[in-house]
Simulated scan of single mutants.
Amino acid sequence: MPTEKSFRDLHQPGNPLILFNIWDAGSAAAVARAGARALATGSASVAGALGYPDGEAIPLDMLLQVVARIRAVSDLPLTVDFEAGYGDTPAEIAGNAARLDMMGVAGINFEDGVPPENGIRSAAEHAERIAAIRARTGLFINARTDLFLQNPSDAHAALLSEAAARAVTYAEAGADGFFAPGLTEPSLISELCRDSPLPVNIMASPSAPSITDLAGLNVARVSFGPFPWRDTMAFLTQAAAKQLGQGA
Score class of each variant (00 low, 15 high):
R136E: 14
G247C: 10
F148W: 10
A164D: 06
A241V: 08
A123R: 05
D24K: 00
P90V: 06
S205C: 09
G113I: 10
G177T: 09
A163Q: 05
L149Q: 09
R69W: 01
M62Q: 15
H156Q: 13
P206W: 03
G48M: 02
G177W: 01
S161N: 14
P90L: 08
A72S: 15
F140W: 14
Q243D: 06
I93N: 00
T89W: 09
P116N: 13
S207Q: 13
G216I: 02
D24C: 00
N218R: 04
R230P: 04
N15L: 02
G104T: 10
R71Y: 06
S74P: 14
Q246H: 11
R8Q: 11
L63N: 05
A98F: 02
F140V: 15
T212A: 12
E125R: 01
I22Q: 02
T79F: 10
S187R: 13
M233P: 02
S223G: 13
F140Y: 15
G177Q: 00
R129M: 04
L76C: 04
R129C: 11
A84H: 04
A32T: 13
P115F: 11
P181F: 12
I120N: 12
L214N: 08
L188A: 15
D195E: 15
E172W: 09
P197R: 09
V105G: 06
I58E: 01
G55N: 12
S223C: 09
L17G: 13
T145P: 06
L192H: 11
A234T: 14
D154W: 12
L244D: 11
D81Q: 07
A25M: 01
L192V: 03
R134C: 13
N151C: 09
P116M: 03
V80S: 07
I133C: 03
L17C: 04
D213K: 15
A47V: 00
V31L: 00
H156S: 08
G104W: 07
I202K: 05
Y170H: 01
F20E: 03
R230K: 14
A40E: 14
F148A: 03
D81W: 06
N118H: 11
Q238F: 12
N21R: 04
D24E: 04
F148M: 08
S6E: 15
L217R: 02
F140T: 13
T184Q: 09
A234K: 13
I18W: 00
R69L: 00
W229Q: 14
G87W: 06
